[in-house]
């Protein structure tokens, strides 16, 4: 009898422990910029943290038990961290931030075929990796709409990082957006210059000044660090020249330029990270190339930060910009976003 009781107690205990083991665990490997970059890393962290908090509540455990994250100090640290997490086999999913993790991940992931990995903004062609990419041209289109309506000269410009397909797609989206919103703008009125580097704000500024002096009064920057040069150039004729940022609300990430930045395209890395984690926990996760954007399976991932209030979340949301954008422009942006979502606006891209 006592033996049976003991066995029963044992079974119950094992069951409880088993429940404990069922709690999902999430690992986040940030890019080398680390937290506090007001960009990619911070966004990814918010997404993962949001998922972790929800899961912590669902399973009644502290967040720390679910969520681990590391801030690698150099690219050389990536492999060590990826293997550290993967080899334990405890993590439901390992989220790797930054395109420079992809080549390493392609070597590491095959060694742990049962481990789920996510890499953001790059493609790692391995069977157990979900590679998240974004429909960048959608944010560019919305930025084009704002630029097309805001311009007084009916001439706008874009500063691209490099003349590569990715950035040409930004330009195609931007140009179509501007012309959709303002038919007075001809294709040749949408200027473009390519810096040829992601980290050359000085050259970015020169090229921007060239476009401003050619008559463009709104310039959209899609050039990584180089397009900080757009903001610096706009400051030289504040109130006449304007700028648009990319990927995050740059009135927030570079608040010193919030007086010339009228809007920023958004790449919602936070939403993608959150969604991929929840999919892994709920068992709907799939490897392969996962597209995020308005025209995608998840219907989220791109948008624009413009105006002072959320007009159409999560697509048209509030910005920290100090410039007052009239409601009629915001309404038109919302109309564009709805059009893209519903498929009445089709953005052509290569």
């Amino acid at each position: 009898m006592r033996k049976i009781a003991l066995v029963l107690v044992g079974v119950v205990l094992a069951g409880l422990l088993g429940l404990g083991a069922g709690v999902p665990k999430i690992a986040l490997i940030l890019a080398t910029g680390g937290l506090g970059d007001r960009s990619f890393n911070d966004q990814s962290y918010w997404g993962a943290e949001r998922a972790a908090k929800e899961l912590a509540e669902r399973y009644g455990v502290p967040v720390e038990q679910i969520f681990s994250y590391v801030e690698p100090r150099s690219i050389a640290d990536y492999e060590g961290y990826q293997r550290e997490f993967a080899r334990t086999g405890e993590y439901t999913i390992i989220v790797c931030i930054g395109f420079d993790q992809a080549p390493v991940l392609e070597e590491v992931a095959p060694d742990y075929p049962n481990q789920k990995f996510v890499v953001i903004d790059a493609v790692a062609a391995v069977d157990n990796v979900a590679s998240v990419v974004f429909n960048d041209w959608e944010e560019a289109f919305l930025c084009g709409v704002v630029a097309g309506l805001w311009t007084k000269t009916n001439k706008v410009g874009m500063l691209g990082g490099m003349d590569i397909p990715l950035i040409r797609r930004f330009y195609q989206g931007f140009s179509q957006g501007a012309r959709w919103a303002n038919p007075a703008i001809k294709p040749e009125d949408v200027l473009v210059r390519y810096v040829g580097a992601w980290n050359d704000p000085t050259k970015g500024k020169e090229l921007s000044l060239e476009m401003y002096q050619a008559g463009a009064d709104v310039i959209y920057g899609a050039a990584g660090k180089s397009h900080l040069g757009v903001f610096a150039a706009a400051e030289e004729n504040r109130g006449v020249w304007w700028a648009i940022g990319t990927d995050v609300d740059q009135s927030w990430s570079t608040p010193e330029h919030a007086d010339v930045i009228i809007a920023s395209g958004l790449k919602r890395v936070d939403l993608a990270v959150y969604t991929e984690i929840m999919k892994a926990v709920e068992g709907t996760w799939k490897p392969g190339v996962i597209v995020y954007g308005m025209v995608s399976e998840s219907k989220i991932g791109t948008g624009i930060a413009v105006g002072k209030v959320d007009k159409f979340p999560p697509y048209v949301v509030a910005s920290y910009s100090e410039v007052d954008i009239p409601d009629w422009i915001l309404d038109k942006v919302v109309e564009a976003a709805k059009g893209i979502l519903e498929g009445t606006i089709v953005i052509e891209h290569e």
Binding site: I75, F99, D100, A102, P103, A122, M162, G196, A197, W198
Partner: peptide, 18 residues
């Protein structure tokens, strides 16, 4: 290995090919 250098490998990152 920078984008304007002669040994810029792949995928945006400043590194050589494997």
């Amino acid at each position: 290995v920078s984008p304007r250098g002669p040994y810029h490998g792949t995928q945006w990152a400043n590194q050589t090919v494997r």
